[in-house]
């Protein structure tokens, strides 16, 4: 099986906690509003998704009704819990029977401990929008505290996220989950760093194309104060995902975006077959190209210039840089995941 890696993800949680809703939003391009239409999941729904070239995410959406749950822990036990890469357990923050939810969580851990002891554990405290803003942190902390204790008993380390389908927090959680499954995410990061340095841009973000989850991002140390909003990456995921839905209404797909904002310029274009890149530059540092190509990296170097009319040139240089970098990133994508 050279090059194809199948990663099994278990999606668990009580009935109605929002498992299928979040799956549809992230992987099937639903809008948060559309999830009203979803019915209850019967037994286990399998979804296989190609992710980043040669990786396949095999998502097991396990229906959360008690009858199915009992089944998972008895007759289907070995089938469900074998070869699991990650368990994503969804807690409904409004749940009336939190104790029972935690018991189910413990049962999952116990089975995973037996069948896939190397699995990663994620706990999503979902439907956070239903909690008053001031209380959200406390509620989340309290629940996570008890979860951390229980998972320590099985020598698992649980990673928690507070999520809701109504804002970008869902993208943050899933971006972290998916990134933890990609073995060469470090290589992406490294090359993105190099790209940002050579092109002298303030920020570069790499997205997966269909889900628009953030794979990696680099912010230059010289960048002028974008730090005010640390959730901007997920926000971009959310914004573009919504725009993709409106493009779908025209029976078309989103391809690229260039923005000349009041303070910054941004370009969003596809990088490889399964990734998109976004490059952000502050307007103050207007740069123009020298035209000389650096032989080693193959990326056009930029020189600073005060000419205010060089926006067009700058635009083209960034596009050229992306084009050159594309080959490199394609190579990473096709690298054998096992090797």
């Amino acid at each position: 099986m050279a090059g194809t890696a199948r990663r099994k993800l278990l999606l668990m949680g009580r009935s109605g906690s929002g498992k299928s809703s979040m799956r549809s939003i992230i992987f099937s391009n639903y809008s948060a509003f559309d999830t009203r239409r979803l019915g209850a999941t019967i037994d286990v729904e399998h979804q296989n998704l190609r992710f980043l070239g040669n990786m396949t995410l095999s998502l097991w959406d396990c229906g959360g009704q008690d009858a199915y749950m009992d089944n998972y822990f008895s007759s289907q036990r070995d089938n469900i819990f074998q070869m699991v890469e990650a368990l994503i357990f969804v807690f409904d923050v409004e749940s009336k029977e939190l104790r029972k939810d935690i018991e189910t969580f413990v049962l999952c851990l116990r089975n995973l401990y037996e069948f896939s002891p190397s699995a990663r554990i994620f706990a999503l405290v979902h439907k956070m929008d239903l909690v008053v803003v001031e209380k959200r942190q406390d509620v989340y902390r309290a629940l996570m505290h008890s979860l951390e204790d229980t998972s320590a008993m099985f020598s698992f380390k649980v990673q928690g996220f507070a999520t809701t389908i109504w804002d970008e927090s869902l993208y943050k959680a899933w971006s972290n989950i998916v990134c933890s499954l990609i073995p060469n995410v470090g290589i992406y990061q490294k090359h993105l760093q190099t790209f940002a340095e050579i092109s002298e841009v303030d920020e570069v973000i790499l997205f997966e194309k269909t889900t628009f989850l953030v794979l990696s991002h680099v912010t230059s140390s010289k960048s002028p104060g974008f730090e005010s909003d640390s959730t901007r990456f997920e926000k971009i995921s959310n914004i573009i995902k919504q725009f993709k839905q409106s493009c779908n209404k025209l029976r078309s797909q989103f391809q690229s975006l260039s923005l000349r904002g009041s303070d910054c310029s941004a370009y969003l274009d596809s990088m490889t077959a399964s990734t998109m890149i976004m490059v952000v530059m502050a307007n103050k540092l207007v740069t123009t190209g020298t035209g000389s190509e650096e032989a080693e990296s193959g990326v056009v170097d930029l020189l600073e210039n005060d000419d205010p009319f060089s926006g067009e040139a700058e635009n083209n240089i960034i596009l050229a840089n992306i084009k050159i970098a594309r080959k490199m990133f394609e190579k990473i994508e096709h690298m054998s995941l096992d090797g």
Binding site: Q242, F243, S246, L259, G261, S262, D263, C264
Partner: peptide, 19 residues
Amino acid sequence: EICTDFIDITVDMNSLYKI
């Protein structure tokens, strides 16, 4: 619709990268 949505994303993205 696509035009109004496009205004949305332009404004949103611009406000994300305001210095």
